[in-house]
């Protein structure tokens, strides 16, 4: 993690500790992280579900803030870990979003449906990608998307999901292999 990020994030711990005495201070943590968490959830579940995911995640985080490990200055892995559980409970909605995209080329969180600039090429890559995402094991998908969409490091993913670092690596390798296969097949079809 770059130093600038560490400096900015150093305050999360202080905020969480402070919120033990002044609960409303937790809203500062919300303002800091909710916009990007919403985006993450919207990519996985669509905007309607995203709002619920953000709400449930922050309520759960607030209720368990006493157990936050103060040695970790950055609260993002903790928040995204909670969000992963919340999203995991909505797996069916997630698969619906991906499959609908494969069929229609429209993702509800993107205005253009992903058809930016060279729409055709984008769709040609994105459709097999979405299909591959839908086919991943849920645990592998969490790891892949925490790395690719939430920009967590392997160690942070390990902390977020409460799994060993080795498991993060093996899940990510498996997910990458599936994605690679999907992209290669696409190239095979399209020439």
């Amino acid at each position: 993690m770059p130093d600038s990020a560490t400096a900015v994030d150093a305050e999360d711990t202080a905020l969480i500790q402070r919120s033990l005495r002044e609960p409303e201070v937790f809203a500062v943590l919300f303002d800091r992280h909710a916009p990007s968490l919403h985006r993450y959830a919207a990519r996985r579940l669509g905007p309607d579900n995203a709002e619920d995911v953000v709400s449930e995640t922050f309520l759960a985080a607030f209720q368990s803030r006493r157990r936050y490990d103060v040695r970790h200055a950055d609260a993002r892995p903790w928040l995204y870990g909670i969000a992963s559980n919340v999203i995991g409970k909505r797996r069916r909605s997630e698969l619906t979003v991906y499959r609908a995209y494969v069929r229609s080329g429209v993702h509800p969180a993107t205005v253009s449906g992903g058809l930016v600039e060279d729409g055709v090429t984008t769709l040609a890559v994105n459709r097999p990608l979405a299909a591959a995402l839908a086919a991943l094991k849920p645990g592998d998908r969490h790891v892949l998307l925490l790395v690719a969409w939430a920009d967590l490091t392997y160690e942070e993913v390990s902390r977020a999901l409460g799994i060993p670092l080795g498991t993060v690596r093996s899940r990510l390798n498996r997910a990458r292999r599936k994605i690679r296969e999907a992209l290669t097949n696409k190239e095979g079809h399209d020439g």
Partner: peptide
Amino acid sequence: EITAVRRLWAEAPEGSHEDLRDA
């Protein structure tokens, strides 16, 4: 592959004030 996934629906915006008001 990670880059490909990273680009997927990358234009999805961050949650707006409106999106987050109820939460």
